[in-house]
């Protein structure tokens, strides 16, 4: 299994993600510079958090024009695993690899805090080592993380089980009828924190699992997501 972490100008969590993949999860990992166009040596590609191109214009709007994105489309089409975290999720939406968009938080401010996530679909390559309904404690850090989509798309995502993570209370409870809830930090529709594409091989999530993969950082809940992806790739080989 070989993992790649894309480095866009302005990526901030590239080193963090690299550290967790290579040192904690134990995957053979390399950086992928945004000008590269050959991803054929990789099984998993992670788009890390940060402020690609300063988030100027709109988060992810410029990064999607990078040469590597074209290669990424091809990579995803071939069934390679793609994971976008925070800014990576924003880029995947802008690039059309994931549906919907990420708008400015309802509080209109940047928010960095711990949140609780409920695993809604444990049958994806990224959640196979988790169980449905399991609650994860993972931090967020973003200003544009409110997941939005037109009503019919939202319905489709729900029906297809594409909603992978939802913000919830510490005990895992949540109320889909509430539009705003204290446990939903950004006002995302249906409390959505992470989704996959229809095929299930492209994941986007706003919370940062790489910040919750070691005991010394007070939570190891994020590690299971990387471990799942690793296991999925191993099984496919």
């Amino acid at each position: 299994m070989r993992a790649g972490v894309i480095v866009f100008p302005g990526s901030n969590c590239d080193h963090d993600t690299f550290h967790v993949l290579s040192q904690i999860v134990g995957a053979d990992t390399r950086f992928v510079f945004h000008r590269e166009t050959d991803l054929s040596d990789l099984d998993l590609v992670v788009l890390p958090g940060g402020f690609s191109y300063g988030d100027y214009l709109r988060a992810g709007a410029i990064a999607r024009l990078s040469p590597v994105i074209e290669a990424l489309h091809e990579f995803a089409q071939r069934g390679g695993l793609v994971m976008g975290i925070c800014n990576g999720f924003q880029i995947l939406c802008e690039a059309g690899l994931l549906p919907g968009a990420l708008a400015v938080n309802t509080c209109l401010e940047f928010r960095c805090q711990w949140v609780h996530l409920r695993v809604e679909n444990a049958a994806t390559p990224f959640t196979s080592s988790l169980s449905p309904g399991q609650v994860l404690r993972i931090p967020i850090a973003h200003q544009e993380g409110r997941y939005i989509a037109p009503p019919d798309l939202l319905e489709e995502l729900e029906e297809n089980g594409q909603v992978v993570f939802r913000y919830c209370r510490p005990d895992g409870s949540l109320d889909l009828k509430e539009r705003e809830a204290p446990y939903n930090p950004n006002g995302s529709l249906n409390h959505i924190a992470g989704i996959v594409n229809r095929q299930g091989n492209v994941l986007g999530m706003m919370p940062h699992p790489e910040r919750a993969s070691e005991k010394v950082l007070s939570s190891e809940d994020g590690r299971a997501i990387f471990m799942s992806a690793l296991a999925a790739v191993g099984a496919a080989r």
Binding site: D16, E109, F110, C112, P139, L217
Partner: peptide, 8 residues
Amino acid sequence: QYDHMVRI
């Protein structure tokens, strides 16, 4: 409002 966790 500050990212106080980046760089793990």
